[in-house]
Amino acid sequence: MTIGKNLGKEHRMTSAVSAADIAPTAYAWEIRATGLKVRVGRKRMAVDALDLSLGTGVHGLLGPNGAGKTTLIRTLATVLRPTEGSLELLGEAVGGMGEHRALRRRIGYLPQEFGYYKRFTVREFVEYMAWLKEVPKADIPAAVQRAVERVGLADRADERMKALSGGMVRRAGIAQAIVNDPAILLLDEPTAGLDPAQRLRLRELLQELGTDACVLVSTHLVEDVAAACTDVVLFAEGRLVFQGTVDELASAGGPGHVGDSPLERGYSALLQDPGQERGTW
């Protein structure tokens, strides 16, 4: 099933954007891919003939290792170019040689691994990323403060990045991804390194962000999808295996399938069903 179209999204952004950015939207979906193919290397098609439409909400991206999840997210972040097919983000066609500078101002992206200057404080790091995203200079201090507060790092904002734990660095990465109040937020394994309490807080934040943005979360943790996501996209060998609600995913499995919960059993059932695309474990 497809995901509900976005409605009534005028004035989604904060004052840290231009008037053009807060104009009424004229697109049906924040993310829309048709026949999308993305080649990695000379031969391997990491995303293969993908048809996908995503609107407002929190969408969980599940799949085994090597399924193509990271390649898909990097393509949606305009880091990689489509090889074939079409991709539209916020109504703008993506591909070719265009830099998509204005579009990138409205996207938040957290890769699995991200670079930073170790001598930067958390505040300096998020400020720098806000500057790269062309947040207006006058709006940067307030935008940074709000971002670090939302990830629970307000009391560590003036500590150097090199002094932080792995989980805190990850939270700083989430802060930079949301500092521009993005219309599309792409998070690749955001819970990596977070303790259970931090994961719970992140789930709450994702639900908050998903009320007026399109949030796509790649994760290996099925329980995170159950708690935070409005629907699930299951990906295997570069192809869409399933798209539907969390309840529909859970109902796809049965007692004979591998897993400790209905969601895990539904996940394994869809990957193991010979009528579906099979993933690599």
Rank of each mutant, 00 (worst) to 15 (best):
G193W: 03
L76K: 03
C214A: 15
A226K: 15
R12N: 11
R32P: 04
V126N: 04
I140D: 05
A138N: 08
V246E: 14
E149W: 04
E208W: 02
L263P: 07
D195E: 09
P141Q: 09
T70E: 06
V217T: 09
V144W: 07
G85Y: 11
P64E: 06
V225W: 03
M45D: 07
A192S: 15
E149A: 14
A130E: 11
E92G: 04
G98M: 01
Y117R: 01
G8F: 14
T121N: 05
L187I: 01
M1H: 07
P24H: 12
L216K: 04
A49R: 09
P24G: 10
R44Y: 01
R106G: 09
L249Q: 12
R199P: 03
I22T: 11
T219G: 08
E223H: 08
A93F: 01
S86Q: 13
G173H: 00
A154H: 14
A252M: 08
R123D: 11
G266L: 13
F242Q: 07
V40I: 14
T245W: 08
M129H: 11
E30W: 04
R265W: 03
L221G: 01
L202H: 00
S53V: 09
E208H: 08
N6E: 09
M13T: 09
R119N: 14
R265C: 06
L185D: 00
A157H: 01
L216F: 08
P190M: 10
A252D: 10
R74D: 13
G108W: 14
V246R: 08
M129R: 06
G63E: 00
S165L: 03
G108Y: 13
L186I: 11
V151L: 12
V233P: 09
L263Y: 10
G256D: 11
I73V: 15
T230P: 00
T75S: 12
E248L: 09
Y27T: 04
A147K: 08
P190V: 04
L36K: 02
T280E: 09
A19K: 08
V135F: 03
V47S: 07
I22D: 14
A175W: 00
Q176D: 14
E204R: 11
S15M: 12
G259I: 02
V38Y: 02
R201Q: 15
Y109P: 04
L187W: 00
N6Q: 13
G55K: 13
R42V: 02
R74W: 03
A172G: 01
K162F: 13
L194V: 00
A23N: 12
P182M: 10
G98I: 00
A157I: 01
G238Y: 02
K162L: 12
K69M: 02
P274W: 08
L205K: 03
L187V: 02
A183C: 03
L76P: 01
L206F: 07
L194Y: 11
E208F: 04
A16R: 15
G8A: 13
D21H: 15
A228I: 13
E277T: 14
V135P: 06
R105S: 10
I107Y: 00
E88R: 12
I3S: 13
E208N: 06
G55A: 10
S218C: 15
G256N: 04
G63W: 06
L270W: 02
D48M: 01
G95L: 08
R106W: 09
R265M: 12
A19Y: 02
Q276C: 08
L72N: 02
G35Q: 13
A67R: 06
A20Q: 05
E84P: 02
L249I: 13
L61T: 03
L103C: 12
R160Y: 04
